[in-house]
Amino acid sequence: MRVAAVDLAGAVWRTLPRRLLAAAGALGLLIAAVPAATGAEPTPWQTLTLLRGVALTGALGLAFLLDDPARHLTAPVPVRRPVRQALRVALVAPLAALWWTAALLLVPSASRPPAGAITLEAAVVALLALAGAAAAVRLTEGARPGPAVAAALLLAAVLAPLSLPEDWALFVAPGDPRWAAAHDRWAVLLAGAVVAGAWCGPEPLGRRRWRGAG
């Protein structure tokens, strides 16, 4: 069974959009390194905005994680789609954690926001991207939902700061009195993204019936 698991992990690894993920990761690190490369001394708000841009860049890459050009060929295999999707996430998660740690270390420590809070924000954005990709896989027949999910995530990132009322603001500065309350809302979003991703994991009901009939 261990050999089968290793073989499955290897097969899933080969199907990952590695070049796209690497490009998004490299771009994110380049953004984080701008102050060090230019000798700038950004304010805390500028550094926070920079890290939020890094997090969004990484999430845009993760929006493509569930793209599977062979989706309709792999549907009848014994390993169910939720297992394959979970394995994709598990293979990428350690690398994503290292990448985010590197991004935090690249920005100036003097203006770096609280690591736990900004990491919570980054985790939520990443999980929303994955949940959106899982929803697209469950609700549509497309093999490459990544571009549409990335576009929706980018649109939400632009509209959210403009459309949310001040009492529900998410993008606030560390010195803002709303900082703690905003991150309570980020925690709620985190739970919602996890639940949404879990709900979207199983095969569509119609496909399960088709497989059972076969």
Rank of each mutant, 00 (worst) to 15 (best):
R19M: 12
L60I: 10
A23P: 10
E166K: 15
D68M: 07
L162P: 04
A32L: 03
P114G: 15
L128W: 15
W168D: 13
E141I: 12
D68V: 07
G116W: 12
A36Y: 05
D68H: 13
L95F: 11
V195K: 02
G197N: 05
M1Y: 08
T43I: 05
L51F: 09
L155N: 03
L50W: 00
A5P: 04
L29Y: 09
W99H: 12
A122E: 00
A151W: 02
R185V: 15
G116Q: 08
P113T: 07
S111G: 14
P145V: 06
P145Q: 09
A93E: 00
A37L: 15
A152R: 08
A122L: 01
L8P: 15
A169M: 03
L29W: 08
V172S: 01
L127D: 05
A59S: 09
V137K: 13
T49K: 03
G214I: 02
D67S: 08
M1E: 10
L127I: 06
A134M: 00
A97E: 02
V188F: 08
R185Q: 13
P113E: 07
L30H: 04
W99G: 01
L164E: 02
I31Q: 09
T15E: 10
P94S: 10
L60K: 06
P44E: 03
V124R: 11
P161F: 10
P82E: 00
R209W: 15
A4M: 10
F64V: 02
G10Q: 12
V149W: 07
P161G: 11
E121P: 04
A70F: 07
